[in-house]
Design a protein around this nucleic acid. Sequence first.
DNA 1: TGTTAGCAGTCATAATCTTAGAGTGCTAAA
DNA 2: TTTAGCACTCTAAGATTATGACTGCTAACA
Lengths: 347, 347
Amino acid sequence: MDKDKLSERKERILKAVVDEYIKSASPVSSGEIQQKHFNEISSATIRSEMSALEDMGYLIQPHTSAGRIPSKKAYKLYVDKFMVKLPLRRKEIELINASFKSRFDGIEEIVKRAAKVISDVTNYTSVIVLSNINRVKIKRIKLVDLDSRSALVIIITDSGIIRDKIITLSATINPIYIEDANNLLNKIFEGKTVAEIKQADEIINTELKDFKELYENIVAILLSYEEDKNSSVIIEGASKMLDHPEYDLDTTRNILSVIDKKERIAELIEENQDIEFTVRIGKDEALDKCAIVTAKYKINGKEIGHAGVIGPERMDYSKVVSVLNYVGKTLEEISHGGKDDKYDKLK
Amino acid sequence: MDKDKLSERKERILKAVVDEYIKSASPVSSGEIQQKHFNEISSATIRSEMSALEDMGYLIQPHTSAGRIPSKKAYKLYVDKFMVKLPLRRKEIELINASFKSRFDGIEEIVKRAAKVISDVTNYTSVIVLSNINRVKIKRIKLVDLDSRSALVIIITDSGIIRDKIITLSATINPIYIEDANNLLNKIFEGKTVAEIKQADEIINTELKDFKELYENIVAILLSYEEDKNSSVIIEGASKMLDHPEYDLDTTRNILSVIDKKERIAELIEENQDIEFTVRIGKDEALDKCAIVTAKYKINGKEIGHAGVIGPERMDYSKVVSVLNYVGKTLEEISHGGKDDKYDKLK
DNA sequence: TGTTAGCAGTCATAATCTTAGAGTGCTAAA
DNA sequence: TTTAGCACTCTAAGATTATGACTGCTAACA
């Protein structure tokens, strides 16, 4: 369409309407816009401009005698064109930095903190989905004896995520067994992705001999990570969903029940994996009235997952994007200063 | 008081009122009680009995022309005297059992599953608070090298909880260092509680020599567990709080914000540590309108934490207690069949 | 041609009033 | 002690009215 070219004045008015609506959550009238943003022209003029914007699909009138609210189309334009990355306040920056000062955290704990601080600073619900272990390479596997029949398997991925599980074997475990096993395991698993391991299943079987049970246990562990999305989804501040005046009890209930089903949220957050930043508005049945802003997070240059913020369509996109951005950068810095990427110096 | 002795009929009527109110969430009238529970006597008689029960503080009339609802006092009596542990349904038992079939879970994952299934079966919000590591004995500490400057510290407690953290040291780590360190660490930490370690701080300092930095790191890790209650509190089904008709939006918001602050919930759940089962009704400012049922959970005979269910005062106590009970028993059984308590067979 | 003041028309929201009926308390009789 | 009967109370729901916030349109003006 050609009509989609907005005059500069229309753009300014539209931006003003979105800004006001983000603040007030109630329909914006021509008078309000005139008072707060356009002292130079009359409300009648603004009225006719807004009427035109409505015809173009950018504004919606809930009823004849109400002001207007932005449409999804308006939000999209707003995000693309008008949104500025405003610098965070000193207090907010301090809060974020303070969250990451602890030295001892593994990646999963860092990520939990990230989720918490994103939610705290933005005042929206935040979600972090850790990358599927399927696509991640195994850097090293380590077996540690616990007692004569059980051992701890430690899996270190190239993104630095460390997971461990206890396994129980029918064979007796002694130091020699552990050493042999460790050598063999690393030979088999090092540098492979879970997907590759699944395929290689048959071929390897011959090499294994005494370690067949162990091998099968470890593969089962890897597969179990794949299955349960649950444990790789971190949600913080879900109760903040109650603070948005545009949602009635029913809507809130629906939204929260979707969020509770972590699988669905994981899919939504992980969509568009190749784009650095996404804003999605009302894409899902129950999340019809929600906007989701997502970002890809890296540590050590490796993607570790996606972070998302869920809120009403009229969310404070500028702030959310700024916070996601700053937290993302902070995460990358942590990895530089903290533990480094030298696992491969050992064999 | 002497008046507190209820006649048998009063007791039966009171129980009937509580039962009905649990079902319907709306004031119970004398007629309703007469129809459903007391065909032999008239509603007028029940009316006068209910009036007496009101005088005694067991029932409350929201307004003159309404039925009556139970008071906190009534709920307490109900829980103490009338509640029966009804057997769970086959479906519910199957659901619970299915949650625990996986072989590979460490204690924390088992506990997460427990929280989830408790919430799913009862339809209330569930909370599990893992025992403060302070009171738990350290069974063994293990150091595993990751690269030349960092290592993984694995802490095994006598209740079988395993935690690990990465530490980075200024000294270079080699196999000999690791072995020496492991020996020393176990000499120092084995069988001690965190509280004891804090006190022993000075005395040990002399023995340490080259391992001082390592020691301090590990103590710092132990202390950090003590600090953040956050990571030892698991909440499931918080959104179910929205399903209770007696809560308006504001009340729900308050309750959920208390639940979000995990520290406060942890305190509530951990109160009365010596009692096997507790029902607490409206003990807290924001949780004034809530009841909390808690149980102590053990694995391998060692207390691992407390589980709690949070809901409205009129919650289905029978069911909640039954579920908590059954899940508790299941947990104890897991530990018998699964990995056993033989860590001490190694030195 | 774009802008503006003025004014009638619309419609939601709030306030007020009305009504229906659910449930009680009391009384008097069994 | 129990019960039927009835007057009384009070909420919840529905109907009615009033208010006022906005708009859209028109006509005049730059």
